[in-house]
Design a protein around this nucleic acid. Structure first.
Lengths: 337, 337
DNA sequence: GGTCATCATCGAAACGCATCGACTGTCGAA
DNA sequence: TTCGACAGTCGATGCGTTTCGATGATGACC
């Protein structure tokens, strides 16, 4: 193993000079810095992680806790893990993954053994054990999502309420009077992530305040249930003209197919908006307007805030990322009956 | 931070005694061991990870590399990551996740900085960069999957060839003469994981050797394509009586629905076997017989072999896990036309 | 009772790095 | 010419473990 000692010898300087040349924490003559860097390249030197942890105060590792519950939709959650990992690398950080049983217990372990510098909490529920834990742990932590009690926490999330209002406003402004929300399975609302209820509540409330008639359905994750739910939303007289979908990709695909099967055109008969989706709605049977949930958005910021806490005080806060609207041609005025 | 020093003082022994009491590497009187353990509990002591890495030769971290390509089916891959993480914990190991761009480059980095003790390579392709890398790296590594060139590697995988033969034999033994394989999208066979081609080739070869007529289809990941593909497999005269599916869950669900829509009963008209599936086939619209691909099976063994390499020489090998057959009532004799 | 092995414990030396204080030389201002 | 400021470099210390060799205590054996 080539150590900093070897580099120092090769460059003809002391160990501390090598360290400073690499960290830039003290000024070093350009010439000697170049010699050090050359030696590093020649010897393919990489600082020993353990030594760095011990001597410095940083481990360059972030813990990512993701419970991966039975009813979680893996693609979306994987996208968040990926987004955190990618963002972390920009700060020269790696991620340690704590799943399922380890999501809570592992946090305790890795922080008290000083294995990680900080924690990113993913898929937080309204009432999440891990939230109390990170509050007590006193380690730089950022929660992606908004639990009920945000006291003392740094939270980052898409503004789901605003997203719901944006969807409602867009439909209302286009002239729609009867709108529906195709949501997640019931279990998700009952004990799952926190944002589906937030979206639903804001959707229903804002629809009411805009004077719209609103419906809501929670299909299970199979084709038959999805088709039934969309049928219910359309109503016995098929008077629904605006459909908002906040559910996983295959359900949205099924919904679009059902509309087609019923001879309803998009957006001629029904306008459709996909809300808070992490996938590409252009790949659906019919491209849909979307208010995307971009994991990179919240995760980039979450990592940034975690790193920031390493060096300075960061006040507790809830940062909500404003939604954006991407048109793909699935929105139009309601049909003139 | 409470250190080993504090524990030693509290227990009235030396630092080295604490270390030996905890590691068990030298004999310690029962009485003093108890005192040490009591002190550890009282002070909630946990060894500093950095110090342990530096002084010992272990980091207690395993790298998991998973490219997470664009066409990967997230739920299955997540299941493997989870299985590795769970298995690792049984050896007191944590996992560092290297995704996408970092899947290859990160390996170099984390091994040369001595951050990890070993590597688990997931979702290996026939011709995978990471395979050459781990060969060169000379770090305990286990490949989950079987690349074309396995020289010098320790590989663990489900025996897909045997699984394919098992599916064929089961249908053939039940009397079926015309069978079909519903596979993954074309792109997966062309540049994706290595096992779909292995399964397909073994399926077709073994069907031929059993004198069966065999068909094969590669539907894209949407309902329409899936329905079309199943229709093709059934043939113009609908003479197909045995269907094997080796594709993702939603496609299998669609296929089952199509059969029902066509008025074909399972297993009355068509016998169906789900092969190498990571999900629960009992949850499909019709429960299917399955030759499951259990991530825990290969991942448990992979982690075991990686840990083993830390202390002893492990010869290169390819360990194939024999397939099992789980009946759920979707298999029967062909209809007597 | 002396010798020798065995057991339990201790002290000290790494492990590889970051960092602090100190030292040297250079330059500009007084 | 002298002094101070400052840039550039070095040596030494400490981070918290693991582990090696050494030491004293204990018991078995002749």
């Amino acid at each position: 193993m080539t150590s900093i000692h070897d580099v120092a010898r090769a460059a003809g300087v002391s160990i501390s000079t090598v360290s400073y040349a690499l960290s830039g924490k003290r000024s070093i003559t350009e010439a000697t810095r170049q010699r050090v860097e050359a030696a590093v390249r020649d010897l393919d030197y990489r600082p020993n992680a353990g030594a760095r942890m011990l001597a410095g105060k940083r481990t360059y590792i972030l813990a990512v806790t993701e419970p991966l519950r039975a009813d979680t939709y893996a693609p979306a959650h994987m996208a968040f893990v990926l987004a955190v990992a990618t963002a972390a690398r920009r700060y020269d950080y790696d991620v340690l993954l704590l799943l399922q049983d380890e999501a809570a217990g592992g946090l305790q372990r890795v922080t008290s053994s000083r294995l990680v510098d900080g924690i990113i909490v993913l898929d937080v529920t309204k009432d999440d054990d891990r939230v109390d834990l990170v509050r007590r742990l006193d380690v730089p932590s950022v929660v992606v999502g908004v639990p009920d009690d945000t006291q003392g926490l740094v939270c980052v999330d898409l503004d789901f309420e605003a997203a719901a209002r944006l969807a409602v406003d867009t439909l209302a402004d286009a002239g729609h009077r009867t709108v529906g929300l195709l949501g997640e399975p019931r279990s998700v609302y009952e004990r799952g992530s926190n944002f589906p209820p937030r979206f639903r509540d804001a959707f229903l409330a804002h629809a009411a305040s805009r004077g719209l008639q609103a419906r809501f359905a929670m299909p299970e994750r199979d084709t038959a249930a999805a088709r039934a739910a969309v049928g219910d939303l359309l109503g016995p007289d098929a008077d629904l003209t605006g459909l908002v979908m906040h559910c996983e990709e295959s359900i949205q695909a099924t919904a679009v197919e059902l509309l087609r099967d019923r001879g309803l055109s998009v957006p001629g008969d029904v306008s459709v908006i996909s809300a808070a989706s992490t996938f590409d709605t252009a790949a659906l049977p019919v491209p849909l307007d979307v208010i995307p949930l971009v994991p990179a958005r919240s995760c980039d910021r979450a990592v940034e805030l975690a790193i920031e806490q390493l060096t300075e005080r960061v006040d507790p806060r809830v940062e909500l990322i404003p939604p954006t609207y991407v048109g793909r041609g699935s929105l139009g005025p309601p049909p003139t009956s």
